[in-house]
Amino acid sequence: MKLPPLIGRSLHRGLAPLAGENAASLVPRTRLSGPVPWVLAIMITLTVLAVAGGLALSNLANSARSDLSGAVTVQIVEADQELLAQQTQVAVRILTDNPAVQSLRAVPQAELDALLEPWLGTGNAVDPVPMPALIDVQLRDVADAQQIEQLQSVLTNEIPNVRVDAQSDWLRPVYSALSSLQYLAAVLVILLAVTSAAAVWLAVRSSFAAHRETIKIVHLLGGKDDQIARIFQNSVAIDALIGGIMGLLAGLLGVMLIGSRFAGLDSGMVAGGGLGALDWIAIAAIPFAAIIIAMLTARLNVMAALRRMV
């Protein structure tokens, strides 16, 4: 009887061992078809929005802090207008001579009137309401409590009714709110990452269960855990890539829409909340981070399931 060719030939050429472990393409791709790319797309859209929001808030807070870090307002309260003018000149002189002061500007009366116009009406500010004099001071360093104390002390020697305030103090509650929002964005990003990983975990488990018999056969034929895990990893990576691209595009669209709305406000403070090049790079990296998380999740899941096999 004629032998099967492979065996017949091997009688002559000896038993060369088979080697190698590149078997990732052995088993048909366990496609995680269905909801996974869509779920990941939604998660990544939300993550992009949260990250963009968090970064914009961070930039906004940093910009405001930077602008106001050395800004101080000197306020002189005096009902007698002549005396007020004299005291203002004295204050300007003292401040100009102070080495801690980088620049200063006495706010003109017209500007003060304009500030009150919305409440008092045009031309009504000066006579019935005694207005304090205001001097905008920019310090060389941060206007911390010690600097404020020192300025207050120097000025009070000459002008009893003077008050020195760091401008950043007025925005402290705003900074606090911005910080809270930043933390919220960070927590959101973490929750979204965990939820994405959980979605992948469930999908891989379901896929693993559906292909359990195939996996057992590959296992019994000598397939390594790593080979089998790689099949799932690659499959999940493709799904995550598809979901990531969709999510990134949708997220960017959302960021741009929201950005254009804020840009329309034309507010000085909001203008500091723009995104820089590094921010955009960080946002573009989100899908890649999602792919890594998804692959890692799939690998851990499959390896844990395989370890239960003999």
């Binding site: 190698g20 078997a23 018999e213 590959v218 034929l221 000598g222």
Partner: peptide
């Protein structure tokens, strides 16, 4: 393996072995 052809089923051990 139900979704593989006869060829792919027979080739499976060889592919696993690289």
């Amino acid at each position: 393996v139900n979704h593989l052809s006869a060829f792919d089923n027979v080739a499976l051990p060889l592919r696993i072995a690289g």
